[in-house]
């Protein structure tokens, strides 16, 4: 039976064109719907006071200033730890280790690490950072968990990017008498910066959006954390608490809107910077 007789190629082509366009449009539509809904419901409660005041009555009134600071704290701690570690592991795999068993093990490990549910990380954080290392409920404990969560993302994206750097760059550098380390930091890493930054941003946006991973380790304090050993309450956890404990759905949406805007600003901002860097680098 010839398939061309059931559906003639020209018509099949038209059907497939339609399906692909529809998939594309649907993806954008979902994004607009989710973002639009959160922003429409949340933005009315967002004003300067909401951003800069402490919460009153568990968050029924007042603002979310301590939560913004908590989020900055945990995300920054995660970034400071996971970025050098992730990039370092990627450089090791791509530039130093030859394709051997250890490499496959590290890659496999990163994949598993990336697929562990965040609530499991949360439980591990409670046992290890909070109890065993006695960091207690603190933005430090929360940040460390998020570092572990962001690590595989940063590693994986950096590794793919570094592997895609043409070996002709490395040869050119060696050919001029550069050492391996000089080649890595003067040629390979600068050429990979756009991809590496994308990996860092993916890891950081994952970290800043996590509630489950930090809920057992960061505490749930309503005060602004000053030191890294103070407890805090990052935005997603606040949002979760407001919604599930029926405290204030309006303020939950407000918190969600702030979180979404922060993530959007980080993503769009770094994309612009990376684009500029890339144009300068390649003259494109």
């Amino acid at each position: 039976m010839n398939i061309n007789k059931i559906i003639p190629p020209k018509i099949a082509q038209k059907i497939m064109n339609g399906l692909f366009i529809a998939s594309g449009l649907l993806t954008i539509l979902i994004l607009i719907l989710v973002l639009g809904y959160v922003l429409v419901k949340g933005l009315p409660v967002v004003n300067l006071e909401f951003l800069l005041a402490d919460p009153i009555d568990s968050g029924r009134a007042g603002g979310i200033f301590p939560m913004i600071i908590s989020s900055i704290y945990v995300t920054a701690i995660a970034g400071i730890i996971a970025t050098p570690l992730g990039i370092g592991a990627a450089i090791y795999i791509v530039e130093y280790a030859n394709a051997n068993r250890a490499v496959r093990l590290i890659r496999f490990g990163a994949e598993i690490l990336a697929s562990i549910p965040s609530i499991v990380y949360g439980l591990f954080g409670l046992a290890f950072f909070v109890v065993f290392l006695q960091f207690n409920w603190s933005v430090l404990s929360g940040g460390l968990i998020l570092a572990i969560m962001a690590l595989p993302t940063i590693f994986q994206v950096s590794e793919v990017t570094l592997s895609s750097i043409p070996s002709s760059y490395r040869e050119g550098s060696y050919g001029l008498g550069a050492s391996k380390w000089q080649t890595i930091y003067r040629v390979v890493v600068p050429a990979a910066i756009p991809g590496i930054v994308t990996g860092i941003i993916l890891g950081m946006t994952r970290a800043i959006s996590e509630a489950a991973a930090v809920m057992f380790s960061v505490g749930s304090a309503l005060q602004t954390p000053i030191s890294i050993f103070d407890p805090g309450r990052p935005l997603p956890l606040h949002l979760y608490t407001l919604a599930t404990e029926g405290i204030s759905l309006d303020n939950a949406y407000g918190t969600a809107a702030v979180l979404v805007i922060i993530v959007l600003v980080i993503t769009i901002g770094t994309n612009l910077i990376v684009d500029r860097y890339q144009r300068k680098m390649t003259g494109g």
Binding site: S168, E171, G172, Y174, L176, G177, V187, A191, T282
Partner: peptide
């Protein structure tokens, strides 16, 4: 490699 320079088959300037 400083003394013995090399030019490759495909032009490979750094970015």
């Amino acid at each position: 490699r400083k003394k013995v320079g090399m030019v490759f088959q495909k032009p490979n300037p750094f970015p």
